[in-house]
C-alpha cells in the first residue's frame, strides 16, 4: 500500500517535471496529454491515500433562492446597472452571502437566450446596460423592468450610478436597527470615494454619506438626465425589443465579469 503510494508520488513528480519542460518548450499538445496523465496519477494517489476513510460529502448549504433571484434582489437594492463585484458585495452584506462571481458569468447570455426564445415570458430579465453606441456595456447587469433611461449610459452615468447606489446602500442601513458588520464595511468602502462622506478611519455615517453623495449628484444630474434621454430615445427608435434589453451587438458576452 505505502509502496504503491511511493511509486505514485515518484511518478507524479516525474510527470510534473515533464509537464513543465513541455510548457517551457511551448509544446502544447504534449503538455496537454501529460497533464491528463498527471491528473490521473493524482487521482490514483488521492484514492490510495484516502482508502479506508470515507470521503466526507461536501457540505455546502444550498442557497434559498436561485442565482437569478439573488441577483435581482441585489439589483433592486442598488437601483442602477451594476457590476458583478458590486452585486456579490451587496449580496454578501445584506442577503444570503451565497452568491459567487463565477456563477454570474453566463447569466446575461442565458437570460438573452430565454428572452429571444419566448419574449416577455418572465416577469423580469437580467439584462444589459447600453452604451451611447447602443452596445452592451462591459460587465454590467440591469433589470429589464427599469425604465429605458435607467438602463442606458451617458459619459457621466457611471459616476451618477455609483453615487445613487451609495445613497441606496446608506438608506438601507438607516432603516436597519442593527446593520451587519459587512454592510457597514461596504458603505465605508463606497463612502471613502465620495468627497465629504467620511473622515479618516471613522466608520461611515449613512446620513452623512447620503448628504455628501447628493451634493455631488447635484453637479452631474441635469447633464446626465439629458444625455441618457438622448441615448434612450435613439435606442427606442433604432433597436428591436431584444436589442433594447441586451444591446446591439449580436454576440454579447459578459466580459471581465469574474
Amino acid at each position: 500500500m505505502s509502496e504503491s503510494l511511493d511509486a505514485l508520488e515518484l511518478r507524479i513528480a516525474e510527470l510534473r517535471a515533464q509537464v513543465r519542460r513541455a510548457v517551457k518548450a511551448r509544446d502544447n499538445t504534449l503538455a496537454r496529454s501529460l497533464r491528463g496523465d498527471l491528473r490521473r496519477a493524482e487521482q490514483a494517489w488521492d484514492r490510495a491515500v484516502g482508502a479506508g476513510e470515507p470521503e466526507s460529502p461536501q457540505e455546502r448549504e444550498a442557497p434559498l433562492l436561485p442565482v437569478r433571484e439573488q441577483v435581482h434582489q441585489a439589483l433592486a437594492l442598488l437601483g442602477v446597472p451594476s457590476a458583478v463585484r458590486m452585486i456579490v458585495a451587496v449580496n454578501d452584506a445584506f442577503f444570503s452571502g451565497a452568491l459567487r462571481g463565477p456563477q454570474l458569468t453566463s447569466l446575461r447570455r442565458d437570460e438573452e437566450r430565454s428572452f429571444r426564445g419566448d419574449p416577455y415570458a418572465r416577469p423580469y430579465y437580467l439584462c444589459a446596460a447600453l452604451t451611447d453606441r447602443l452596445s452592451p456595456a462591459r460587465g454590467l447587469l440591469a433589470d429589464s423592468t427599469w425604465e429605458p433611461e435607467r438602463r442606458v449610459l451617458g459619459p457621466l452615468s457611471p459616476r451618477v450610478d455609483f453615487l445613487v447606489s451609495a445613497m441606496r446602500v446608506a438608506d438601507r442601513l438607516v432603516r436597519m436597527t442593527d446593520p451587519p458588520q459587512g454592510a457597514r464595511r461596504l458603505l465605508r468602502r463606497m463612502a471613502q470615494n465620495i468627497p465629504g462622506a467620511v473622515e479618516g478611519l471613522a466608520p461611515a455615517d449613512p446620513e452623512t454619506t447620503i448628504r455628501a453623495a447628493r451634493a455631488e449628484l447635484e453637479v452631474h444630474h441635469a447633464a446626465d438626465v439629458a444625455q441618457r434621454a438622448e441615448v434612450a430615445a435613439r435606442a427606442g427608435r433604432q433597436l428591436s425589443d431584444a436589442e433594447r434589453l441586451f444591446g446591439a451587438v449580436a454576440l454579447s458576452t459578459l466580459r471581465g465579469a469574474s
Partner: peptide, 22 residues
C-alpha cells in the same frame, strides 16, 4: 470599478480634479 470611483478619489486628491469632471 464603479465608474473609476477609486481613481477619481486619487486624482481629486493628487491633481485637484474638479468635482464636475467625471
Amino acid at each position: 470599478e464603479n465608474g473609476c470611483a477609486e481613481l477619481l478619489r486619487l486624482l481629486r486628491e493628487l491633481l485637484k480634479l474638479p468635482v464636475a469632471e467625471v
